[in-house]
């Protein structure tokens, strides 16, 4: 689906959105008449210091408005911008700042939903889609940490060998199915049905804890993470208890 088709299917009741070469921002109307904020990184562009500060500023404005309306983050990006200028200026802080702004918005009462409808990779993926409370995707989305050719260079394995290994495990290779199995994506929407009710269903889910490692265990793509984290929590609590009573 193109971005225009997605927006038309999501917001048949109206929307007022402005797009630039790399970002989108504005508001739309939900089926029940309530407003929803929309922002995102679009057109497969990389996310650098300039885009990140713009988007974060928009999120902070929304939080300060106090309207507690949901925020939809649309994502079709490349990776972080790999340039001398971005790193010289401290890109890690800008990407973290954007992620923090989204986490802050959620903590301050805004539902945050990421919609991955194209590509995204590495730092750009972490700072946008993966910072949302709930991440959904459309078929054809292409999340990645690194593309296979680059991965082949770093791991010194041929692409054919990597492809063969990717058949055996969802843990490393790029792709939507693997990210779903690992628990990173809550649900893949049906693009043949209207998107507005599918968004409404996500918005009706109760607020909760980070459930991604539990989903990864249930789906078999990430069997150990939830168990290891829970064991560390229990061991820390026991050590804390011993210190209190010792």
């Amino acid at each position: 689906m193109t971005l225009d088709e997605i927006l038309a299917s999501l917001f048949p009741n109206g929307r007022k959105l402005e797009t630039t070469d790399t970002t989108i921002a504005g508001q739309a109307i939900l089926p029940d008449g309530r407003p929803i904020h929309v922002l995102g990184v679009i057109k497969g562009q990389p996310l650098g210091v300039d885009e990140a500060i713009t988007l974060a500023g928009r999120v902070i404005e929304i939080v300060k408005s106090g309207d507690r309306a949901p925020i939809l983050i649309l994502v079709d990006s490349a990776s972080q911008r790999m340039s001398k200028r971005d790193e010289l200026l401290g890109l890690s802080e800008y990407l973290s700042h954007l992620a923090k702004a989204l986490l802050l918005a959620e903590a301050e009462g805004h539902r945050t939903i990421g919609l991955l409808y194209g590509g995204s990779a590495a730092g750009a993926f972490i700072a946008t889609a993966l910072a949302a409370a709930t991440l959904v995707a459309l078929p054809g989305a292409q999340p990645a940490v690194m593309d296979l050719p680059s991965m082949a260079r770093v791991t010194k394995l041929s692409i054919d060998v990597l492809k063969a290994k990717a058949e055996a495990t969802p843990v490393f290779a790029p792709g939507l199915d693997n990210m779903v199995l690992s628990g990173g994506i809550h649900v893949v929407w049906d693009e043949t049905a209207p998107l507005a009710p599918q968004l409404a269903a996500v918005l009706q889910r109760p607020r909760g804890q980070d459930e991604r490692s539990r989903l990864g265990a249930e789906r078999g793509g990430r069997r150990k993470a939830a168990e290891i984290a829970d064991r560390v929590i229990a061991l820390a609590a026991a050590a804390h208890g011993r210190a209190q009573h010792g």
Partner: peptide, 10 residues
């Protein structure tokens, strides 16, 4: 990579 990336987000 996928497990590592999600760990960063978590």
């Amino acid at each position: 990579a996928n497990a590592g990336e999600l760990a960063i987000a978590e």
